[in-house]
Design a protein around this nucleic acid. Structure first.
Length: 140
DNA sequence: GCCAACGTTGGC
DNA sequence: GCCAACGTTGGC
């Protein structure tokens, strides 16, 4: 059985929020126009867990989504070799994990979100994923 | 193929 | 709203 991978996607909540994903039940994760981000989309496998990060006005991880459909040609691209995946909401974090919290956590110094701040789709290691889940479980 | 100019992203 | 980081574009 294939190992499950973990990812993080960024979105401006004014563009597409966790609340909207929850209402929709499922969405096309399209419009990615960066090669590294696109390649990460293509590495996603059905069932992988995806941390859902609100950039700009949010600046926190708010929930966990899951990959419902693996990469296919981006329906929003009129030219170019771009991909989309489908995401479904899985679970909101009890306590959103803020960017500030992550920046100050010694276990997360390698987190791609902190090291490549402009990348919109990135991998998360299993220990990082578990740490973020723990931080999101409740306030301590 | 280099690299300067430009555009976009996103934290602050 | 500013601006640093950085990816992309295009002239040469």
């Amino acid at each position: 059985m294939a190992k499950s991978n973990h990812w993080l996607v960024k979105t401006e909540p004014s563009e597409y929020s966790w609340a909207q994903l929850t209402r929709d039940g499922r969405t096309h994760w399209s419009g990615v126009r960066n090669y590294e981000a696109r390649n990460n989309l293509r590495r996603m496998r059905r069932g992988d867990q995806v941390l859902f990060y609100h950039s700009n006005s949010g600046q926190e991880i708010v929930g966990i989504a899951t990959v419902a459909r693996e990469a296919y040609p981006d329906p929003d691209a009129d030219s170019g070799d771009w991909s989309a995946v489908d995401l479904e909401p899985r679970k909101a974090l009890e306590a959103p994990v803020t960017l500030f919290r992550m920046k100050n956590d010694p276990d997360l110094v390698q987190l791609a979100l902190l090291r490549k701040p402009r990348l919109s789709v990135m991998p998360v290691t299993p220990p990082e994923f578990q740490r973020i889940l723990a931080l999101g479980r409740s306030h301590s």
